[in-house]
Design a protein around this nucleic acid. Structure first.
Lengths: 244, 244
DNA sequence: TGTGTGCAATCTGTCGACAATTTGCGCGCA
DNA sequence: TGCGCGCAAATTGTCGACAGATTGCACACA
């Protein structure tokens, strides 16, 4: 989030956009926190104009919300939306994997396998940040192999929003056998794509999504029970107060 | 596209955005035409700043493309993308109609029927512009009834992009029996939604999309044969030169 | 006459400043 | 002490201007 070397003409907006995006999806900027234009124009050493443009582009991707005549804020995580979020995610898992099975071309599998290897390594080294990032890249690359830019863009947007959820819940207890299970599921997907088995890909995508949903439900449930043990007077989890 | 009454603080951007969007989807601004900031700031009577912000937001919705250090242009229609476009559109027809069958609530059907009636009237009066607009509203309202904002936003974006295609091909010969057929198909969809028959909705959505694809394919084929009759020396359709 | 170079016009990217709106605080009043 | 009003600070929306980049034209040259 700190200012780096001053970029050339035209690159300022992209710099700000990329850095803010990174900070948002990695929760360095927590949901609901204000994005003050003057403060940002001081942190990055530039005028408010490119800052504003970056904020508008972030808003278009759903990463922040512009309150008219008030400060724009990092998009809150609306937990009520989680069911429909996973509905969308599940469908895109299925569609992208299925499409990749049917339409993947020479070289696609190599790229997919490369991301898969990176993910497996992140699991081995227990690098949570790398796990989340490489997992996203893995699925985006599959979507690209499916050759439908409309789906790819939509899926990438969903996955980015999902990275924030994953940071909150998914990989919290790193001492866990489940990430390895996902490595296996990914392997099965790659294998099915290579064989061109669309139906199997569809099933694997749906199962993968189901797995993730159940996983997060478990964490939320554990979360609430552990919070309840603290007594009824305290709010369940103050950290979630920014949702809405 | 002309300047209207000067709006208040904060409304300028929305005004420019809405007007440009309208002009683009209705092909008043043809694909590939440049969106000059200074010219626009003269047409609307305001500074370049709100113009730029509107252009950025349009770019985020895929309606224009910003060429660095050059003028931004209205997004070209890439005819090579049409197959994958219809793949995406077809899926969203199915998902939104299916979802509406399962999750529609009180009052949703009334809104859907209102749009359907407006569409039917547009067909009767042979108002092409109204047909395209009401058709979009009809499907967006179904998507809203399905209650998944992720799908709704994606679908709306696809339908807006589709409005340009429709203007180019779909409703060109107004003397046609097919629009009435779509009225019937819409009726069937509403009925299936009301009954909560998700599987039937899925099939109707897929059939609706297939119908539209075949229709446009017919027009393109007719287009090319009629162009070929002009002789081999002339390019098939100069109007398509802006694609890519 | 065709081609390469250089200049001028045009347009975008960025900046600093002003105006309008919102927000928070302090004050008066019951 | 609690509540409402009004002012001041802070922040956004908009503006005009300057600098850098690109494009097109004119001109020189072969």
């Amino acid at each position: 989030m700190t200012a780096s070397a001053r970029p050339g003409r035209g690159a300022s907006v992209q710099t700000v956009y990329a850095q803010l995006r990174q900070a948002i999806v990695e929760l360095a900027l927590p949901p609901g926190s204000p994005l003050d234009e003057v403060r940002l124009s001081q942190q990055f050493v530039m005028s408010r104009t490119p800052i504003r443009e970056a904020l508008v582009r972030l808003a278009a991707n759903g990463l922040d919300i512009t309150l008219p005549n008030r400060s724009t804020i990092v998009s809150p995580i609306d937990f009520e939306r989680m069911p429909v979020y996973f509905e969308a995610l599940s469908l895109m898992y299925r569609v992208s994997t299925r499409g990749a099975a049917i339409r993947h071309e020479a070289g696609d599998l190599e790229k997919i396998r490369a991301h898969q290897a990176a993910y497996a390594e992140a699991v081995e080294t227990r690098d949570v940040s790398a796990m989340i990032g490489t997992n996203r890249d893995f699925h985006v690359t599959i979507a690209e192999a499916a050759g439908n830019p409309y789906f790819t863009a939509f899926f990438a947007r969903l996955l980015d929003e999902g990275r924030r959820l994953l940071r909150l819940y998914y990989y919290q207890p790193v001492e866990d056998h489940l990430p390895r299970r996902y490595v296996d599921e990914h392997e099965a997907m790659v294998s099915a794509i290579e064989k061109g088995n669309a139906e199997l890909c569809d099933e694997l995508g749906a199962a993968h999504a189901t797995q993730i949903v159940r996983r997060i439900q478990d964490y939320i449930a554990r979360d609430m029970t552990s919070a309840m043990r603290l007594g009824p007077a305290r709010r369940p989890r103050p950290r979630h107060s920014h949702s809405r």
